[in-house]
Simulated assay, not measured.
Amino acid sequence: MYVAVKGGEKAIEQAHALLAEERRGDVSVPELTVEQIEEQMGLAVDRVMNEGSLCDRRLAAIAVKQAQGDLAEAVFLLRAYRTTLPRIGFTQPLDTSAMHMRRRISATFKDLPGGQMLGPTYDYTHRLLDFSLERPRQGAKSLRVAQAPPEPAVGDASCPRVADLLAAEGLMAGDEDGDEEPGDMTRQPLAFPAERSVRLQALSRGDEGFLLSMAYSAQRGFGSSDHPFAGEIRMGEVALEMVPEELGFPVVIGEITVTECVMITPPGPSTKGEAPALTQGYGLAFGRSERKAMAMAIVDRTLCSRELGEKVAYPAQDEEFVLGHCDSLEASGFVQHLKLPHYVDFQSELVLLRDLRKDHREGHRIHDAIPN
């Protein structure tokens, strides 16, 4: 498909050298460290971890630095590195009910059992440029530690899930796929129709902007989630557990920060003869990734249309369209491959076009030669 370019290797080496200079920038300005990116650009790092499908803040920060802040390129770097890592085992399902919460809000209950915790959020800022950020702030870290909210006890029953409260009243539709062995799209190719566990995997590493657009389209009437309600959004640390073969019981190997979102949708017309019930969409993302988790939950509910007997009529309900196009790495690669040489292909198009134009001219001459 492609032809060699004379002197291409030397040109590529020079391009790499120039890229390194561009990345470093003005040498009179102190170089940005990986630690600074990890600590002060946390939301960008979290997005790269999610779409890169690898929960490692330092590796994600390195990718952000190497890509000059281009998050799509950073995702590519992290995803490529991930393929070199061996898989040593599987963790137990995350128990988010035992989360050490730093943020917990609900748009469905004002007096939520256990209370609401605003936590770190941009929701109430005025979106005005803060020019004081031009100057380093002294003592900011110690202030953050002093104001850190107390962590609830593990498994604190005073903070039940909103979905569990509604399910206890029989108002929430059951999760048909809850007890099935989850699929693994990193080991098996994506096939349609896809199980919900596979759909959630694809959405969790999908491009945030794409999922946001799909969720927006569903809310504007192009889906099954015209006006969902944020049942609950949680952000905090959860324990990771594994069951070593030599022990036979779970042990905690660490903890990670996650954002969890449950979107609740009012009941629509029943197509299975069942009593009306609320339905839910689910989103879970690494780190502080609230917008991603919310969009994921809305799209998850929309993609459940087939199981719920709803008519699949819009792009946000079409799992092949959504899952086949939500991956930022595939989308970026498919678009950017157009920069590579296509000389042979384009020349064949020119040959075809010239032949068509020749036939067109000859056809006109023949038409003009025929007497009326």
Rank of each mutant, 00 (worst) to 15 (best):
V5S: 04
L18I: 04
L19W: 14
L19H: 13
R23P: 03
R24S: 10
G25N: 10
D26T: 02
D26P: 00
V27P: 11
S28N: 09
V29T: 15
E31Q: 13
L32N: 05
V34Y: 04
I37W: 02
G42R: 07
R47Y: 11
N50Y: 00
C55Q: 12
R58V: 13
L59E: 15
A61S: 05
A67Y: 05
E73D: 06
L85Q: 15
G89R: 09
G89Q: 06
F90T: 15
P93Y: 07
R103A: 13
I105M: 08
I105L: 10
I105R: 11
K110E: 10
D111Y: 02
D111C: 04
P120Y: 08
T121P: 02
T125S: 15
H126P: 00
L128G: 04
L133Q: 10
R137Y: 14
Q138L: 15
G139K: 11
L143N: 03
Q147V: 15
Q147A: 13
A148R: 10
P149I: 09
E151F: 10
A153K: 13
A157S: 13
C159N: 15
V162D: 04
E169M: 05
D175V: 07
D177T: 10
G178A: 14
E181I: 10
E181F: 09
D184T: 11
F192E: 01
V198H: 01
R199I: 14
R199K: 11
Q201W: 06
A202K: 07
S204V: 02
G209C: 02
F210N: 00
F210G: 00
L211A: 02
S213M: 14
M214N: 01
M214H: 03
A215I: 03
S225E: 09
P228T: 05
I233E: 03
M235I: 14
M242R: 07
E245A: 13
E245Y: 06
E246S: 12
L247E: 07
L247I: 12
V251T: 12
V251L: 15
V252M: 11
G254Y: 04
T257P: 06
V258H: 02
C261S: 13
I264F: 01
T265H: 02
A277M: 08
R288C: 06
E290W: 01
A295F: 02
I298G: 07
V299Q: 00
R301F: 01
L303I: 05
L303D: 01
Y314T: 02
Q317T: 06
E320Q: 11
L329W: 07
A331M: 03
V335M: 05
V335S: 08
K339S: 09
P341N: 12
P341F: 03
H342D: 04
Y343R: 09
Q347N: 06
L350W: 00
L352Q: 08
L353D: 08
R354S: 06
H360W: 03
H364G: 01
D368Q: 05
I370N: 03
I370Y: 08
P371Q: 12
N372K: 12
